[in-house]
Every structure is written in structure tokens, then in C-alpha cells.
Simulated assay, not measured.
Amino acid sequence: MTLTYIVQIIWSLSALSLIILVLLHSPKGDGLGGLGGQAQLFTSTKSAETTLNRVTWILTVIFMTLTVILSANWLPG
């Protein structure tokens, strides 16, 4: 097991986790309800949504960083 192989596994897991987390997000689109301003009447920020956003951003940074590292061949072997 080389370092490149381990980083590729972490990269793949972060990609799959990122896909799952994006699918778990609640839709932000207001649809036609946004035209009348009623969409803002019932919005509230929840702790779960905030945590989901943070984890998604962290995984995005990990995925993008590993993508650059793997594509630039900065790892030995």
C-alpha cells in the first residue's frame, strides 16, 4: 500500500460522502412562493442544517485539496 493508494481511497470516500451530503440538503428553491414574499415567512435556521453545511464545506475542501495533490503527482510512488 503506497501513500498514493491511501490518498486515492480517502479521495474516493470524500467524493462519495460529498454526494450523499449534497443529496441530504433540503431544497432552497422557493418556487413560485418566492414571488409573493411568503417563502421568508416560515424560514428558520436549524442546528442540523448548519452542521450539515459545515460538514459539506469541510468535505469539499478535503476533496478539492486531494484532487490537486493527486493530479499534480506530488506524492511519491
Results as ranks from 00 to 15, higher is better:
residue 65 T to M: 12
residue 75 L to E: 02
residue 76 P to T: 09
residue 7 V to N: 03
residue 18 L to K: 01
residue 18 L to P: 01
residue 58 I to E: 06
residue 46 K to E: 06
residue 55 V to C: 09
residue 18 L to D: 00
residue 17 S to P: 02
residue 12 S to I: 04
residue 28 K to Y: 09
residue 74 W to G: 12
residue 70 L to H: 03
residue 32 L to D: 08
residue 54 R to A: 09
residue 32 L to G: 11
residue 46 K to V: 10
residue 69 I to A: 04
residue 50 T to C: 11
residue 56 T to C: 09
residue 62 I to V: 15
residue 2 T to V: 12
residue 33 G to T: 10
residue 18 L to W: 05
residue 29 G to Y: 13
residue 62 I to M: 08
residue 64 M to I: 05
residue 8 Q to S: 10
residue 38 Q to Y: 10
residue 9 I to W: 11
residue 8 Q to T: 06
residue 64 M to V: 15
residue 12 S to W: 03
residue 54 R to N: 13
residue 20 I to D: 00
residue 65 T to F: 07
residue 48 A to P: 01
residue 23 L to F: 03
residue 48 A to Q: 10
residue 70 L to K: 01
residue 48 A to F: 05
residue 52 L to E: 03
residue 64 M to S: 13
residue 48 A to I: 11
residue 20 I to C: 00
residue 52 L to D: 02
residue 45 T to I: 15
residue 62 I to R: 01
residue 34 G to S: 09
residue 24 L to Y: 02
residue 14 S to Q: 02
residue 32 L to V: 13
residue 66 L to Y: 05
residue 50 T to S: 09
residue 30 D to A: 13
residue 28 K to R: 08
residue 32 L to N: 14
residue 67 T to D: 04
residue 65 T to L: 14
residue 75 L to C: 12
residue 63 F to H: 07
residue 46 K to N: 10
residue 48 A to L: 13
residue 60 T to Y: 04
residue 17 S to H: 00
residue 76 P to V: 12
residue 13 L to M: 12
residue 57 W to C: 14
residue 10 I to M: 07
residue 51 T to H: 05
residue 67 T to H: 11
residue 5 Y to M: 09
residue 58 I to Q: 12
residue 74 W to P: 05
residue 36 G to P: 00
residue 75 L to D: 04
residue 4 T to K: 04
residue 39 A to L: 04
residue 76 P to W: 11
residue 68 V to F: 08
residue 28 K to F: 13
residue 63 F to V: 07
residue 29 G to E: 14
residue 46 K to D: 11
residue 72 A to S: 14
residue 77 G to T: 11
residue 31 G to L: 10
residue 12 S to H: 02
residue 75 L to A: 08
residue 6 I to E: 13
residue 28 K to T: 09
residue 69 I to E: 00
residue 35 L to M: 11
residue 16 L to V: 11
residue 22 V to F: 03
residue 23 L to P: 00
residue 19 I to P: 01
residue 22 V to E: 01
residue 59 L to P: 00
residue 28 K to E: 07
residue 25 H to Q: 05
residue 29 G to I: 05
residue 10 I to N: 04
residue 13 L to I: 01
residue 63 F to Q: 05
residue 16 L to F: 13
residue 25 H to G: 03
residue 55 V to E: 08
residue 66 L to N: 12
residue 23 L to D: 00
residue 76 P to Q: 14
residue 76 P to S: 15
residue 27 P to M: 05
residue 42 F to D: 11
residue 62 I to F: 10
residue 14 S to F: 02
residue 9 I to V: 15
residue 27 P to N: 08
residue 48 A to S: 11
residue 20 I to M: 03
residue 16 L to P: 06
residue 17 S to I: 00
residue 59 L to G: 01
residue 74 W to M: 12
residue 40 Q to C: 02
residue 68 V to H: 08
residue 30 D to N: 12
residue 58 I to F: 15
residue 9 I to A: 14
residue 35 L to S: 03
residue 37 G to Q: 06
residue 6 I to F: 08
residue 43 T to M: 05
residue 69 I to G: 00
